[in-house]
Design a protein around this nucleic acid. Structure first.
Length: 451
DNA sequence: TCTGGGGTCCTAGGACCC
DNA sequence: TCTGGGGTCCTAGGACCC
């Protein structure tokens, strides 16, 4: 906790949905749901209009469709989200060089590191509102909620309370009183499991937490969780803002439309994912010592298996053959039905020691797989709802829906009024996807961040 | 048509070393 | 004869975040 409210937290409101409404005039003021649109997808972001129907993040998509059948269901355009995110982060860096992005739509700023000395509520309120205006200007109308306080914890709670499109500055000295009646679930880090354990102790609010004994908290939650929770209950939080955090792992996972049960089906998928992960690893300039394969069974039980090599590697062949080996080692699980398969790497170094790769020759041979000839990373998988397209005659627009070799497009852009809808053949030679990503973008992993 | 994807951090036990 | 402890690495699982 600092002597001044010098930490700021910014959160863009309903970020993905707001970008869609910005770029698709016909969706403004309407329910919009962004997320995995396939059968097993979940909601990533719902616009405030959709939230009124009970749609929310992490909800199964089929449930969102049931609750709000008239919403626009879009699969997400991460290139556009990244562009907007960079614009916002640049605005934050004008405030202070010390900015810690937490995700595309969220960041902490250390205002003291920016040379600021006046932390009066009036000055911070003016600054916060100017910041929100600036964010709206540079992004073409996105709104942000901003919280300012004496710690990350308080700043984050403040921006939460400011939502949507608001600002809350918490004066020093008022923190503990302000959080006293909050539900423990409002504390970042307290999820369903911890809340359940706390409830067994009769702890539901921050005040209850203060009254619990150190012994019972430690018994129920373990030493470290008990300690940080107790500290937060009194608004004690010394975590600093850090602008440079190195990646510790890279992974990729797929949930299948229907469960797989056969090694012959899963091995090529494992190899393909391993190749994609290896590509991202090389792009990041790292070598990895540990390779992990994760399986989620039809009953949602998760099993992981990992192998740490003597040396660090980054080649497609090595990572794929170890991954397939780890899959084979879990073959006994396959008959239960595999819902999800993931491949990850961790234990990064910046130097190769590929020579030390040493799984037994026989076993390596056994798990040797045919790698995908050309990487699938830039593979065209067809039009998805929400995608940007361009037609030679009708101009720019976006995909409303597809089916039966047809694609329905609404021709409009951020700067036009709501435009006309046309249904075209998927093979229409005049229609093509619009490339929105910058050349340096990694198109492999959209990353289903949720706000 | 039940419940995503990409991460981080923590715990706990066993191996191994000093 | 016995007993000991700390530290680190590895593995597997779990909780949580956006």
């Amino acid at each position: 906790m600092r002597p001044e409210p010098s930490i700021l937290h910014l959160d863009l409101d309903a970020f993905f949905a707001a970008v869609e409404q910005r770029d698709k005039p016909s969706l403004r003021g309407k329910p919009v749901v962004v997320g995995g649109i396939s059968g097993r997808g979940v909601v990533s972001t719902a616009s405030y209009e959709a939230r009124k129907f009970g749609v929310h993040s992490a909800q199964p998509m089929h449930e969102a469709r049931r609750l709000c059948p008239n919403a626009a269901f879009l699969s997400g355009r991460f290139g556009a989200y990244r562009v907007a995110s960079r614009q916002v982060m640049a605005v934050l860096r004008d405030l202070s060089p010390l900015v810690e992005p937490m995700s595309l739509d969220e960041a902490f700023v250390d205002l003291a590191a920016g040379g600021r000395t006046d932390f009066s509520t009036e000055t911070l309120t003016t600054m916060g509102n100017q910041l929100r205006e600036r964010v709206s200007e540079v992004t073409g109308g996105l709104t942000a909620s901003v919280g300012v306080g004496s710690s990350k914890f308080i700043a984050k709670l403040a921006s939460e309370q400011a939502k949507p499109d608001g600002l809350v500055v918490v004066p020093v000295g008022t923190e503990a009183g302000r959080i006293a009646f909050l539900d423990v679930r409002a504390i970042p880090g307290v999820g369903p499991a911890t809340a359940e354990r706390l409830q067994r102790l009769g702890v539901r609010t921050v005040t209850d937490l203060r009254q619990a004994t150190a012994n019972e908290l430690r018994r129920e939650l373990g030493q470290s969780t008990a300690e940080w929770l107790t500290a937060l209950a009194y608004a004690r939080d010394d975590r600093g803002v850090s602008s440079s955090r190195e990646a510790k792992s890279i992974s990729m996972e797929d949930t299948f439309a229907t469960d797989y049960t056969k090694l012959e089906d899963l091995a090529p998928i494992t190899a393909r994912d391993a190749v994609l992960v290896a590509g991202r690893l090389r792009k990041a300039g790292f070598f990895a010592r540990t390779i992990t394969v994760k399986l989620k069974l039809s009953d949602f039980a998760i099993h992981t298996r990992s192998r740490t090599l003597l040396g660090a590697v980054d080649s497609d062949e090595t990572i794929a053959s170890v991954a397939v080996l780890l899959l084979r080692e879990q073959s006994h699980l396959l008959s239960q039905g595999i819902r999800l398969l993931g491949v990850g790497v961790s234990g990064f170094t910046t130097e190769a020691q590929e020579a030390l790769f040493e799984i037994g020759a026989a076993r390596a041979d056994e798990s040797r797989v045919d790698l995908p000839a050309a990487t699938v990373r830039h593979g065209w998988t067809g039009y998805r709802p929400g995608d940007d397209v361009t037609h030679d005659d009708f101009g720019p627009g976006w995909v409303w829906g597809t089916g039966l070799d047809l694609v329905t497009v609404r021709f409009e852009t951020a700067t036009t009024s709501p435009g006309p809808i046309r249904t075209l053949s998927v093979d229409d030679p005049q229609l093509r996807p619009t490339l929105v990503q910058a050349p340096d973008e990694d198109s492999a992993g959209p990353g289903w961040l949720e706000e």
